[in-house]
Design a protein around this nucleic acid. Structure first.
Lengths: 203, 203
DNA sequence: ACTATAAGAGAACCGATAGAGAACAGACAA
DNA sequence: TTGTCTGTTCTCTATCGGTTCTCTTATAGT
């Protein structure tokens, strides 16, 4: 998740991570002094050296002359968008998109954890109001509770979006389509890849 | 939350934030003096400099000559959000929300025209994948093409979300629920209030 | 050992930013 | 018209914040 940039020294990476995760904590873009206080550095000059390195790496906006605080570049932070990993169709592995796209997702449709977006292909969840072409927001985790809708990888080969029922040695994946029937698996054949937390559709 | 505009200095951002959050508190658009008092600035000239910067940034309306106070531009006002006008339930008028809420809506789910958001109550569009509790994004206009899903006001009293069919002297509103049947009206009893352009759901 | 690199402290410098206050001119109301 | 209100422009000043510098220390690499 922390997208690594090359040629960043350890401390620079720390500072970059800090900026990414605490950017919202600051009312405005933090000044060098504020960052010093937050990071426990006493010398503004020292921190400045690191910021310069981050600017050179292209993840912090260069401030030519201006005094507007340290702010990440567009590519440096996720700014309200999530990665679109690909298309999920019942019965086939997730088909990755060629280019690494990003999709704008309102905060209300995300969870606090790491999330990504998939495009839905097919009608297997139609009775849950998830239609062909919808975007779904998935929280990335490897476990889920009964009744949650999950992205499940079966036999390490095919991924599907289904409602989870886990009990007594079997995992049942329920499609939400009257034309399809539930499928049962031994627990070790199923790996949870994420849980549905949001959905969007465009007309 | 605070939607950052480029090249805004610290104080300019503060003032912009203040305007966004307190704009409704002023009876009329605030004058420079009123803003000075509210922000604790004693010099009108100083504040004026900041307002000019906000105008240059495109978030405050330029006031060429006129004396009409400081007001935000359209784009400066919402910043990625749309107004949540209320709840729409088939068969009842739109129920307005008490406070003027705003909902974050990604650009992909909006049209170019003016839009607003409604909360869906009831299951009348369940077969179209619109469930109880969903948010729908509506483009405000008074006409629609056949097959579009519209917010229709019937007899100036009850609003519903239905698929439109308009032909030969009658308007038919199709619910998307096998348990409900289409309704026919004379054209002058139905007024279109908007067209469905997007939909969002949280789990 | 010597050297290179990363990291920090602290001082000094200087343009950018912000505020005060005065003065002026057009807008608007009495 | 008159006078006040309101936006504009100006100068002056203090401070802030980014930059540059030197010096010190620690860790790793041939």
């Amino acid at each position: 998740m922390t997208n690594d940039h090359p040629a960043l020294t350890r401390r620079q990476q720390q500072i970059y991570d800090y900026l990414r995760h605490h950017a919202d904590g600051f009312e405005h873009a933090p000044t060098l002094d504020e960052l010093c206080a937050a990071l426990g550095v006493r010398s503004r000059g020292s921190l400045h050296k690191h910021i310069q390195a981050l600017i050179a790496a292209g993840v912090v906006e260069p401030m030519d002359g201006r005094q507007r605080g340290v702010r990440l570049t567009e590519s440096g932070h996720d700014g309200g968008t999530l990665p679109l990993l690909g298309t999920i169709a019942a019965g086939r592995p997730i088909e990755a998109v060629a280019v690494a796209e990003r999709v704008e997702v309102p905060a209300a449709l995300r969870s606090t954890g790491p999330c990504y977006v998939l495009r839905v292909r097919g009608d297997s969840m139609i009775d849950e109001g998830i239609l062909d072409g919808d975007w779904v927001v998935i929280e990335q985790r490897d476990h889920a509770r009964n009744g949650e809708i999950v992205v499940a990888l079966i036999d390490e080969s095919e991924a599907t979006l289904k409602r989870l029922e886990h009990r007594a040695g079997t995992i049942t994946l329920h499609p939400a389509n009257a034309a399809l029937s539930p499928m049962r698996y031994a627990p070790d054949r199923v790996r949870i890849q994420g849980v549905l937390v949001g959905q969007m559709r465009r007309y």
